[in-house]
Design a protein around this nucleic acid. Sequence first.
DNA 1: ATCTTTGCAAAAACTTTGCACCCTG
DNA 2: CAGGGTGCAAAGTTTTTGCAAAGAT
Lengths: 147, 147
Amino acid sequence: MSSETKTGGVLRALLESGVRITAQRKLVASIMDEERSHPDADEIYRRARTIDPRISLSTVYRTLALLKSAGLVQDHRFDEEHAHFEPVVDKPGHQHIICRGCGDIMEFQLNLDAAQRAAVEDATGFRFVSERIEVMGVCERCRNEDS
Amino acid sequence: MSSETKTGGVLRALLESGVRITAQRKLVASIMDEERSHPDADEIYRRARTIDPRISLSTVYRTLALLKSAGLVQDHRFDEEHAHFEPVVDKPGHQHIICRGCGDIMEFQLNLDAAQRAAVEDATGFRFVSERIEVMGVCERCRNEDS
DNA sequence: ATCTTTGCAAAAACTTTGCACCCTG
DNA sequence: CAGGGTGCAAAGTTTTTGCAAAGAT
């Protein structure tokens, strides 16, 4: 079910998780549910403030940590100095492509195939657990704008 | 020669690059040349101090930035809060696998194949530029130790 | 009522910067 | 000797933590 619903369930899962429910936690969870972009903590904080101007950045961080340990959100560093957050997507092979021009992030699905996994295991002696593929690219808009 | 020498050329390339040569820059470059691990700035700093106890952490950062902009070293965040550095390896498809148990990092070579690149372009509308593949795994030692 | 969560401010971790002095070229 | 590089300390970023007040169950 809900095969095209991206998630929409961070808030619902939070409510069902048994943790104490507060307005701030519901707010952060609902922001994550609306997310199509991959906001960083400060962006989530700014969005939250438009609804509850008294929420603090610490609470945003604490709630994101809570949601993360509950497996409801993930963070990514994208080789930058700060983290970006997104709701956990149940689809396997959920990867990211980042535009070199404008930094826009888009998602796509891809996994290494069995032969590639085996090659990694053979080459390293490690057991393969999971992969994260981060692609650098150029989005259509940037392709048309510069050069 | 040096088919297993990873790079060895950071210092040499630095000397040939035309920038001002200082003892500190040579030291940091030579540390990067000896690297088999993927040290963070503090680890590089600590190694440098064993040779020149008066070198400063700022200089290590400044030199790493210099080497990076010269294309001689790369940094990676590995989804942690701080950067790890390594000499640039000219081999394409130079990727990393990180042990879930001990954090050990190993390298392997892999690129997405043409069909996978095309699939990414089709799905996103972005032009493919490059990929970074980060694999989570379990190294042999950790596999034997726990569980 | 109790025990957790919040907000604030301070600290911590990592990295960058200002400035006077030093060294390379 | 001139101009850039270094060391030190201070400031900047991003994230975490201590504590008293506020809130949830």
